[in-house]
Nucleic acid binder design. Structure first.
Lengths: 343, 343
DNA sequence: CTGAAAGCGCTTACAG
DNA sequence: CTGAAAGCGCTTACAG
């Protein structure tokens, strides 16, 4: 790097005829410094083109002003739905507002999230950590809790929730409301395809679905509930099973648009009309659900707000607060797949 | 943070009965250290649970091991096509392989990219910078060049290309090939809707399109070329103009799937068949183009490889190399929108 | 309101 | 092959 001379507090101090301590205090806006001195020092900083070295500051203060973001490793998680980029955007927004930098996890498939977390913490690279995926194995949460390092979770765990700072939707209510809605419009046999059943989010949605069935006086049937992966294939596979059932379900709730897409595809192949023969409702409100030929009713979980909220609860965590939770409202977008031909 | 005692080189040194210098050399794998000493020190590090402080190391070495990533500010750029997350994934992959951490820009709408860049550089937070969007105003490139700070560009500028480390597709050839293909399948009037005409990528694609027309003995007509924004509306607007033209074009090349989507929508509304009446080909190979009811022929620019490549050329830049360029191959996925009913 | 001094935790010529 | 010493650039009790 040419054309750039390193200028330090000492250079500024010398030019201003004060001590480095004073320059430092001017930098950090210490109110004890007289206006006169402050002006003088500031003039000198400008004259020299001084800019504080963040690394040195971090070392001296044992605070980095940086938040570590642990992204999911698996490729699928990053692409198949818009959650990741939207949530990240929310995190960026939140971090900007709070004045934090963002350090991204660069974990390789094999090293794993925990390794990255340890590296961030023990290398003193960050002041706090955001776990973007509740899929993140519980060992990460365990570790973070064991060292009491500030962190925030997007999503929920079933364990420790009361002591963890996290941000989530009310997935129970969302599924409940969606199921009730399908019942309201006259659907009697409502099937469901969920994602990985070990995930908290899946479990909560199933709970909400069951509760709504009961309240609607519709029996819950094991044979109408499927769980699988977050992909088109899962939707295709269970969709075709559902299509062949006798009597056939007249509604289907799916926990991700891509799964829904697979189901819709197979229904169409089998000449089953949506929504006439079967209504379809989904989650995540992705491009697919909006732009699909039969636009699909979908729950928008507001990923950006989740991301932004995660920064807020993390900042609380950094301040020492534990157990802070933010619930982000969801929105159900009703579309043709449940509403009939009229939009 | 409880349960975590800070252990430093000095602690290790004391326990091992050596000097901190020696411990430091063991950490950095200095070959001059005897195997015996190395073993002893390593045993002590493990015993104490020692982990080097990255911040202190950065300060002492004036190298951070961190790459700054400048993301586009505008919301549209982050969502409307899969480029951003895919490229970011490539960057993550590349950075993992090269052993770098990633610092994300958290620029607010108003502060702008240049401010972030200056902050990264002058605060000594990063060893190099990746500009993710060639839309990044040239002032960033100018600044980075003026201070000769290592950086890499995803995309191209028209200026200085020979001195900048960057990674790009051959957009000229991609558009050329696509146009030739449409001509091969018998299309005679090929229209084009491009993105922002100030962008290098748009200009190169237009060049390729013109060249291919000429070589196919098809006249280039100004009235068949449109440029606008990367959104559905642009596609809808110019799509409807194209639909009304007499004689109507029998093929359309669009530089982004979302634009294509808008055009396809209006064609369908006007009962214009794809591909019978008009063939449609696009860029970016997004979910939309693949899953659309009429799957759209699209050029996959391989965003992940672009991201990964950008890390490679940046690492070269950090080593002092300038003017390194990597061309990432594209792939044309031919689909129903140009091929007829058969997939 | 300001300064001298010690410290944050590591690295690296220099000397032996 | 190893150590003593100075340094990276800032901050912060402590003292006045």
């Amino acid at each position: 790097m040419k054309n750039v001379v390193k200028v330090t507090v000492n250079d500024v101090a010398e030019l201003a005829g004060v001590s480095p301590s004073t320059v430092s205090r001017v930098i950090s806006n210490n109110p004890k410094i007289s206006q006169e001195t402050r002006d003088k020092v500031q003039k000198c900083m400008e004259e020299l083109g001084y800019y504080p070295n963040a690394i040195a500051r971090s070392l001296a203060r044992s605070m980095t002003g940086t938040i570590g973001v642990i992204m999911p490793t698996r490729k699928e998680d990053l692409f198949l739905n818009p959650f990741f980029p939207e949530a990240l955007r929310g995190i960026v927004k939140g971090a900007s507002a709070e004045g934090y930098d963002l350090l991204l996890s660069t974990n390789t498939e094999k090293s794993g999230e925990l390794t990255v977390i340890k590296n961030f913490i023990r290398g003193s690279k960050v002041d706090g950590i955001i776990l973007m995926s509740s899929k993140v194995s519980d060992e990460c949460v365990d570790y973070l809790r064991s060292v009491d390092f500030p962190f925030a979770l997007i999503g929920s765990t079933f364990r420790f929730d009361e002591k963890i700072n996290h941000v989530d939707n009310d997935n129970y209510m969302a599924a409940y409301e969606l199921t009730r809605y399908l019942s309201m419009i006259g659907r009697k046999r409502i099937a469901m395809i969920g994602g990985d059943e070990r995930l908290t989010v899946t479990q909560k949605r199933i709970e909400g679905y069951r509760k709504a069935l009961t309240e609607s006086n519709l029996p819950f049937e094991d044979s109408l509930l499927f769980t699988g992966k977050f992909d088109e294939e899962t939707g295709y596979k269970y969709g075709s099973e559902i299509a062949k059932m006798m009597p056939r379900p007249d509604a289907l709730i799916v926990t991700d648009d891509l799964i829904a897409f697979g189901a819709v595809k197979v229904f169409r192949l089998m000449n089953i009309s949506i929504p006439e023969d079967i209504a379809v409702a989904s989650f995540n409100n992705s491009v697919l659900s909006r732009y699909s030929d039969t636009p699909i009713t979908s729950v928008d979980i507001n990923a950006t707000a989740l991301g932004e909220g995660s920064v807020k609860v993390l900042v609380e965590a950094i301040k020492g607060v534990r157990g802070k939770k933010i619930i982000i409202p969801y929105t159900i977008y009703k579309r043709q797949s449940t509403e009939g031909k009229a939009p």
